[in-house]
Amino acid sequence: MEHIRLAGSLVERFRQADAALGADELCDVAIGAHTRLSAWAASSRYGREVGDALQSALADLANQVAWLAVDANRRQHARPYLNDAITRARIADDPHEEVRALACLSLLSREDHPAESLHCAEAALRASRGWATARLRTLLRLRTAHAYAHLNDVGGFNREMAKARNEFDHGPHEDDLPFLQFVTAQELTGIQGLSHLALGKLARAAESFRAISSGPPAGHRRNHIYYTVRLAEAELRCGDIHSAAHTGLRTLPEVKALNSGRTMRHFAQVRSHLSRAQSVPAREFIDAYRTAFQK
């Protein structure tokens, strides 16, 4: 049990480092830890109490590995770990980890398979009925809202977004699961902005991201930088080359110091679009980008 508690503390350290720095350098470490703990679980003898605790710890770690794979831009590696998390959560009769895995599956499938994303979020809502805190319901409503946006269902998005805000207004609770720490006002505004992007409401998306970019990181530095990069993308799609270049130039040092392949992928897309522009700010950004990221 002491080793299992140690594994749980390791997941928390992964979570804290990821929020501050991004997942690129953490992902392989977490995969290695999951592999070793899985081997231990398969080869050791233990009673029911230890067995259930071990399966829950492995589900927790698998969920964390899946998220780290998403942020490290290694999305293809995430789904097997989420399937593993759901299986182990069922074995241990741990609905918390099962719901967390379903929420992450909703995020993972949102862009390519939005109907599946919606089904996963709705399944998580059903599975958590009766015990979910307001913060968990907030996250699951955000997942459904964003899935509706990718399905181009404006009514569904507006309805679920309103429910998410209503749940968020109930505030935190002592029973909130540790992984919900990122569900802040910044995250609500960020998902709103991403949803407006998916719906083609570019000015409203830029407005949401600008509200995040102008505020403090609120303890989640990586997310703050990610949404600022998405601001540059929204400004580009609005045709505002000047603002996009200035946003990109302003956030470039932070992106360089980050280890988030997902954030870097979007930043590289901003660079690609600005490289075709002829304005002075765009050229300044391209020169700075080349200097910062040259091999």
Rank of each mutant, 00 (worst) to 15 (best):
E2Y: 05
I4G: 04
R5N: 09
R5M: 04
L6N: 11
G8W: 01
S9F: 03
S9A: 09
E12C: 01
R15E: 09
A17R: 13
A19G: 08
A19H: 09
L26N: 01
C27K: 04
D28G: 01
A30D: 07
I31M: 02
V50G: 02
N63P: 12
V70P: 00
N73V: 06
N73F: 10
Q76M: 10
H77E: 13
L82T: 06
N83G: 15
D84I: 02
D84M: 12
A85N: 11
T87M: 11
R88L: 15
E97K: 12
V99N: 02
A103L: 07
C104H: 13
C104W: 12
P114M: 13
A121W: 01
A121H: 07
A127W: 07
R129S: 12
R137W: 07
R141T: 03
T144V: 08
L151G: 01
N158P: 00
R165F: 03
G171V: 12
G171S: 06
P172V: 00
E174Y: 05
E174N: 09
T184H: 02
Q186V: 10
T189W: 03
K201N: 14
A218F: 03
L231I: 10
A234Q: 03
R237G: 02
R237T: 01
H242E: 13
T247E: 06
G248T: 12
P253C: 00
K256C: 08
A257V: 03
H266K: 04
F267G: 00
S272M: 12
H273R: 09
L274R: 04
R276M: 12
R276A: 15
F285T: 05
D287G: 02
Y289D: 03
T291Y: 06
Q294H: 15
